[in-house]
Computed example of a mutant assay.
Amino acid sequence: MTIENAEGDRLLRNEWIICPNDECRKITLKAFLFRYDYEYGQYKIGELLKSWNLLPNSFAKVFPEYIPKAIRNDYEEAASILEQSPKASATLSRRCLQGIIRDFWGISKARLIDEINAIEDKVDPLTWKSIDAVRKVGNIGAHMEKDINIIIDVDRQEAFLLIELIELLFVEWYVHRHERELKLKAIAQLADIKEEQKKK
């Protein structure tokens, strides 16, 4: 579908995919808005101006249920509102991070900065700096500046980076811990089986 406006023609294109898995068959629907340029007597598709995830309405990944539901909900909501409000998305990422620290590390203090400082000696320096960055960017949406005339915005890419860090922490902290526990339990069970076989 083509759209005419004062800034030039636009082309709106839809793309849909049906999952080939017979048990799934879910539909993914996306929309793309392109510049539609007229050159040398013909139209051609120009740069991509914007894209939307229509179904599902979020790019959030599905994480295992052993990650607490409240934390996963905050992550999924941060991903779902990224396009509409990057600042609100960053605020939810901040909240999600606080939930992760309290659940995974068992640390609960009055302020998020105190909780982050409490894990500084438990994680590598780059991870800690990235975690503190989520706090700082999330604070833009969570707290108003003393001077209300100062407006600091958060753009889509910045909010997206925070979501990616949350995903990284899910994998490195929760998923890796779970997989480690499964492997260690399997080894312990194997030793028990061998002991029983020796007795017989």
Rank of each mutant, 00 (worst) to 15 (best):
I131V: 15
R180P: 05
A159Y: 04
K194H: 10
R94Q: 09
K198C: 03
A60M: 05
S58L: 06
S130D: 11
K136N: 10
A186P: 13
S130Q: 13
L11E: 05
Q42P: 11
I140S: 07
S80H: 01
K183N: 12
S80V: 06
G8N: 13
K50Q: 00
V134R: 01
G46S: 06
Q84D: 04
P64D: 07
G8V: 12
N73C: 05
K26R: 15
E164H: 03
I71L: 11
S51M: 10
S51T: 09
Y75S: 02
W16P: 01
G138K: 12
P20A: 00
I17E: 09
R102P: 06
T127I: 09
R72N: 00
F104M: 10
Y36S: 00
I116A: 07
R135V: 10
L165T: 04
Y66R: 00
N21G: 08
S108C: 13
Q42T: 15
D22T: 02
P86A: 06
G41K: 00
W16L: 00
F59G: 05
K122Y: 05
D37Q: 09
T127H: 12
L168F: 14
H176T: 14
K44Y: 07
S108N: 13
A118V: 04
I27E: 14
I187P: 11
I119A: 02
W128A: 10
R72M: 11
K122E: 04
L112Q: 01
Q197L: 15
T127L: 14
N57V: 06
L112A: 05
I187G: 10
G46N: 00
A79R: 01
L33N: 03
P56F: 08
N139D: 13
R102C: 05
M144L: 14
I148R: 10
Q98V: 01
E167N: 05
A142L: 04
A186W: 07
D37P: 06
V134M: 09
S108W: 14
R13C: 13
I151R: 00
I71Y: 12
Q189G: 06
T127Y: 13
T127D: 12
D121W: 08
L169Y: 11
P68C: 01
N21K: 13
R94A: 01
K44P: 04
A188P: 00
W52P: 03
V137Y: 01
N53Q: 11
G99C: 08
L48G: 02
K183F: 14
N53H: 04
E115H: 07
M1A: 10
G138R: 09
I107G: 00
T2A: 08
K87R: 09
L82E: 03
I113T: 05
M144E: 10
Q84G: 03
K200T: 09
Y43C: 03
L161C: 13
E158G: 12
I113G: 02
C19S: 07
D132V: 12
A6C: 02
L165P: 10
N21S: 15
I166W: 04
A159Q: 03
L184S: 05
K194Q: 15
A60F: 01
R177T: 10
T2E: 15
R135S: 10
T28I: 12
S51R: 13
L82I: 03
E179C: 05
R35A: 09
